[in-house]
Design a protein around this nucleic acid. Structure first.
Lengths: 346, 346
DNA sequence: CAAAAATCTTGGAGCGCTCCAAGAAATCGT
DNA sequence: ACGATTTCTTGGAGCGCTCCAAGATTTTTG
């Protein structure tokens, strides 16, 4: 590969001038510029190698994005939520003229990538692993965590999950529901886990404020209605588990209202209901979470706790792009009532 | 930011030893290693700066991905096709332990990014602009074009679009259809363009082999049925144009079969049909292209010319990741017949 | 026409790291 | 105990580039 020096030699000028030709052409006399360009063309020099510029102290002009979830990049990209979050981050990058690097792979790979990725900052789609956060801190580049408040020293953007969940329960209990079921998120790969009240103590996945917070919101809402979350069956599945609906209907047939942690899960439930000829909301009401496009297009259209996912992704990316002092942003959640919820069957 | 030298000084060893501690720890006596690590911790040194390593001659260990289409990154990510292509590329990167950089923005930005992005190779999601290809060539890194054969010297992966389109027409004409309409792709932003036969000569978007090829396939199939593509109305819309269906039904009400260039377009048509109470396939048959997940979930499920999009993305990424001599890969298309096509109304 | 001003061009000094040959230290063999 | 080995550590060379002060050249001015 020819270098600036080679081109300079060929054109009879110095390295510095060649650099100027490519980076500040207005500084170089047109005639000379042409000569240099011609030499570059002959040598097959396609412009200054970014490597060199970089070392000189430049920025990478890129940020890394770790998709939410720990399963596989395919999951993250196909999930409506993951996709919109990425869209938001990508839009922010576009506006800033930066590149977005998708960092995926297993935890080990991600950790290594965090150490070595050629990025100026990091958007952690979700605080999956404390090791990931530690690595990010060690790297000493700005980063932001989505959907986990990790304290005042760390950038974070999240929604008010508790308020959202609370609104869901209030809506359902105002409709008259008393028999609930919760479809929660299993953070590790594997089949659905069913927690029946009494039988085994619901192992509410700890350490992930996303789940915890929403569960807390559900609990509070249930308490308002004189119910205890301890009596509510909880099924934990990965966000894309296709059998989530089946497990739900098999194990908790008595529920009149199913509350979920994501639209994708709720859509799975709707699909299974259709397959079984179960009427929604006549027989059972279903509520999603996130307010994705997809939720508006199901039949019946999904009632969901909606928030601005794209905006969240964008804010996250912007926090990293223009580094300021750490902030914790909490975004509002709004219940969007559609046709998947109604009065309970009698 | 502390450097290897700083740490070395603090630990009383040389730069080289500190480098070894981080990169080949087995070469350094455990005791010394500990001392160095301790010094690094005190100084807040988080590991060797990738910048330096890079210049030394290393690889970026990343490839760039330019999403298909020229509209916006949001479009590309939300379209089922673009998403699956990205999934394929991302999976290949995961397996190779590489990072995937999404290069988006307008043509100018993309061109600049191609020149400067910190990547070892490039996947061009679609040959939108000849300038993009030129820039990629100038950069002298391996690249591959998706859905455009740019000759024997350039890597490409595409489907056999002509065969796919041909299969679509044959299927429809075997069902008895004689009155067709085509929903083609408008490559620039803007409202749908309607080409009525006779009125204005169909401006078949030239220069984009994707469209051309499929149109050629349609033409051949129509000719087999004794029809001329010159007599078939063609509507060109951007892939995500929401009014595509409406324009189609308004302007070409007589068509009994609508052939499209993507599932996304076909789904739009299906949506509009439902809105208008038009029966599919009773009143009009609709065929998609690509065979995405979404096509299987519509009602009625979509007949579509299907191919392995994820596989295509993966192959593309692999071609760039492990550079060999240029290849041109053509992947098969298979017609998947579902319920959106039937005999024409009488 | 010479001096002052404006415009161009030059090349040294790094940027932080890895590679590697050579030197230092520790271990081994007899 | 001393030379031969083996194991560690060192620091120079250089990766390709940008920055910038200084020097060279051209243009303008009095």
């Amino acid at each position: 590969m020819p270098t600036l020096d080679d081109v300079g030699k060929a054109a009879g000028v110095s390295r510095g001038t060649v650099s100027n030709v490519f980076n500040r052409p207005e500084l170089v006399r047109p005639e000379l510029r042409e000569r240099v360009l011609a030499a570059a063309r002959t040598l097959g020099f396609g412009g200054p190698d970014p490597k060199g510029r970089l070392l000189q102290g430049g920025r990478y002009n890129a940020i890394g994005f770790l998709p939410p979830g720990d399963y596989s990049i395919a999951h993250a990209l196909r999930s409506p939520y993951g996709r919109e979050l990425l869209v938001g981050a990508a839009l922010a990058c576009d506006e800033a003229g930066a590149t977005l690097s998708v960092i995926s792979g297993d935890t080990a790979t991600r950790t290594a990538s965090i150490r070595e990725a050629l990025v100026d900052g990091l958007v952690l789609g979700h605080a999956v692993d404390i090791g990931i956060i530690t690595s990010a801190q060690r790297r000493r580049i700005p980063f932001v965590i989505v959907e986990s408040d990790a304290g005042p020293d760390i950038n974070s953007v999240k929604i008010d999950g508790k308020a959202g969940a609370l609104a869901v329960v209030r809506h359902l209990s105002a409709l008259g529901h008393r028999r609930f079921a919760i479809l929660s998120i299993r953070r590790t790969a594997g089949p659905p886990i069913v927690h029946m009240p009494g039988k085994d103590k619901p192992r509410l996945t700890a350490g992930f404020s996303l789940d915890d917070e929403r569960l807390a919101g559900f609990a509070e809402g249930l308490a308002e209605a004189g119910l205890s979350i301890g009596k509510v069956p909880i099924v934990e599945t990965t966000p894309s588990e296709p059998t989530a609906g089946a497990v739900m209907f098999d194990r908790v047939p008595e529920a009149t209202a199913i509350m979920t942690m994501s639209d994708w899960q709720a859509i799975t439930v709707l699909d299974e209901a259709r397959r079984r000829g179960i009427d929604v909301p006549g027989h059972v009401s279903v509520v999603g979470f996130d307010g994705t496009e997809e939720a508006a297009r199901t039949s019946p259209p999904l009632t969901t706790a909606s928030h601005d996912i794209v905006g969240k992704g964008r804010i996250a990316a912007e926090m990293v792009l223009k580094k300021r002092k750490p902030r914790q942003v909490v975004m509002p959640v709004e219940l969007v009532v559609r046709a998947s919820t109604g009065r309970p069957r009698r």
